[in-house]
Write a protein that binds this DNA or RNA. Structure first.
Lengths: 121, 121
DNA sequence: CGGTATCCCCTACGATACTG
DNA sequence: CAGTATCGTAGGGGATACCG
């Protein structure tokens, strides 16, 4: 299966960015964390709006391969699969949380600017 | 010029990741920070090994557009251009630092594993 | 020194359909 | 429910050459 990001890297920052740099990786980790560290495939699909099953599966497989999430299959009918953060994955949560706060702040700043720009007109 | 990442976003995490998600953005911010917050174009080019001038310029322009770095031109001969972090850009440094430490740790873990794997053989 | 201008490729990502 | 399989595409990124 095609990898979202190559596993090659030139330094530790590069390494880290490649592991969380996909389009959905950060959000998936965050959603799992926000849901008490357990989320089913279907719940993730609903949370990450518009993601295709292919991308969701591919992203989850890569996160699993990098030991950021664990995958637990319950052999029931209907089937149930739960994804959870590993200890390594949990270590990224503070980073993602702060980045989220930073994003919130930036968005507010931009809206404020847009508001004053409109006010001038 | 083509943008590395579209400025559209669906949530604050998405917003934040798009702003630092390019292949070199995190490293460029970090290098500027590590060099007392001032770096010249040529110095960056040397630090970010193998980056083409096109990508370096494009990435810097986007960081400037997002108000993460400032660009100062000194009209001298030979010309001198300095890039520095803005206040907004500086706010990202703790997170990037955290991510870097995480990356370091992971790399060490991987090497350790590889080492024990070899030891078994 | 600090960039632009072209050309081109690769692959991350998407749409749709189907399955155990 | 939780995925695969297949095909297609946009644009992020690279190589090279040239410029004020």
């Amino acid at each position: 299966m095609a990898k979202i990001f190559s596993t090659d890297y030139v330094c530790s920052l590069d390494y880290a960015f490649r592991r969380i740099g996909g389009k959905y990786k950060g959000r998936i980790l965050w959603y799992i964390h926000a849901h008490k560290n357990v989320l089913r495939y279907g719940e993730l699909k609903r949370l990450v709006q518009n993601i295709t099953p292919k991308m969701l599966t591919q992203t989850l497989r890569e996160l699993e391969e990098d030991h950021l999430v664990s995958r637990t299959v319950y052999h029931e009918v209907p089937p149930r699969v739960e994804y959870a953060l590993t200890e390594t994955g949990k270590e990224l949560i503070p980073f993602i949380g702060h980045l989220k706060l930073w994003g919130d702040k930036q968005i507010k700043r931009e809206k404020k600017k847009a508001g004053t720009a409109l006010a001038k007109v």
